[in-house]
């Protein structure tokens, strides 16, 4: 069956009651994904959403596609097996900061380094929601939670840095409430052949409310964020009066009032093969820097599954499709004849 020409958002909604807390950022992400999928021109039955454990990982139940709600942290591993077995499927992973960066950290980095052709949507709310509010590997130092009553001590992961460090071929960030930006980012991820890693800042209004308010509130966001746009200089600020430039081996924010202009700023190139600058930009955090959103890195490399398929084809080309009978009869054989003699 070919794709119905007119898949709509509704086609991707299930009849299951969505059970996230009212006001959760996950609704916005669900809505964006349901809006983007029909625009991709892919038959619905080709989509598979794979998730781990956590609030974000209930995602597959609310998408009318194939779905697999697996176990904590393991979605990338399940998705890898599925993609290897069925490269023609569109495999998307829904995961969270605890699922992907804590218990599932190993699978995340290895999926990224292999460049498996799956999309990873990491809902980062900097908290454990489903277990009712413990700090996560992306929580800021000093975070007071039920498990860290005196404040957390360990330094957080920067999810984008982790991804870039693995050699990921597509790395992006967006925010739940920026629907237009999120949809564009998802579309860019969908178009990528290798692993597409998208960190989505997501508000948990119950256990970590307003974690990203400093980036999303109307009055502050233009000063707090810098949009990475391919081919454009890193200019930001409500009045577009600041930018990020590369000064020697360091990034710095420059004010145009001080005599700098857009021409002095770093021109964003998401296709740089050297990940060093993307890594530096990923590290930009307040108060010194605006927070980058958009596509940090987009480079083409052969996918894992295409490499496997190519080897299979090559071996079939060299040896022909294997014969089971020949395989069993390989090695040193001898025959016991009915009279007991050996040949």
């Amino acid at each position: 069956m070919s794709a119905p020409a007119t898949l709509t958002k509704k086609d991707f909604q299930t009849d299951q009651e969505v059970r996230w807390c009212p006001g959760c950022g996950d609704y916005a992400i669900l809505s964006a994904v349901q809006a983007v999928f029909p625009e991709l021109g892919i038959p619905r039955e080709k989509f598979v959403i794979v998730s781990g454990i956590g609030c974000s990982s209930r995602f597959p139940y609310y998408m009318n596609t194939y779905g697999f709600h697996t176990i904590h942290g393991r979605a990338p591993a399940v998705a890898t097996g599925l993609k290897l077995a069925r490269p023609e499927l569109e495999v998307w992973i829904a995961t969270g900061d605890g699922d992907a960066l804590s218990i599932g950290g190993n699978h995340l980095i290895h999926t990224l380094r292999r460049n498996v052709g799956v999309k990873i949507l990491l809902f980062n709310n900097r908290i454990y929601g489903l277990t009712k509010g413990q700090y996560s590997p992306t929580s800021e130092v000093g975070k007071r939670t039920k498990s860290t009553p005196y404040g957390s001590i360990d330094y957080p992961f920067n999810a984008l840095s982790v991804a870039i460090g693995t050699g990921a071929t597509f790395v992006a960030r967006s925010i739940d409430v920026f629907q237009a930006h999120l949809k564009e980012t998802l579309k860019a991820a969908a178009a990528h052949h290798g692993t597409a890693f998208v960190e989505i800042y997501q508000n948990c209004n119950i256990f970590n409310d307003k974690a990203f308010a400093h980036l999303t509130e109307k009055e502050v966001r233009d000063d707090a964020l810098v949009y990475l746009q391919h081919g454009r200089p890193l200019v930001f600020g409500k009045a577009k009066d600041r930018g990020v430039r590369l000064n020697g081996t360091e990034l710095e924010v420059v004010r145009f009032a001080d005599g700098f202009g857009p021409d002095d700023c770093l021109v964003w190139d998401e296709t740089r093969s050297n990940p060093a600058i993307a890594f530096m930009v990923a590290q930009m955090e307040p108060p010194r820097f605006p927070v980058p959103i958009g596509v940090l890195r987009r480079v083409e490399m052969p996918t894992f599954e295409s490499g496997v398929a190519a080897q299979t084809e090559q071996e079939i080309g060299r040896k022909g499709v294997g014969s089971l009978d020949k395989l069993l009869h390989s090695g040193d054989l001898w025959t016991v004849r009915p009279d007991g003699s050996i040949a």
């Binding site: 794979v50 591993a77 890898t80 097996g81 290897l84 077995a85 190993n106 699978h107 290895h110």
Partner: peptide, 19 residues
Amino acid sequence: FQAEDEIAAICAAIGAAFG
């Protein structure tokens, strides 16, 4: 598929079985 660990090895197999 030589996986990154034992857990990934079985999980990948489960994913393949689903497929």
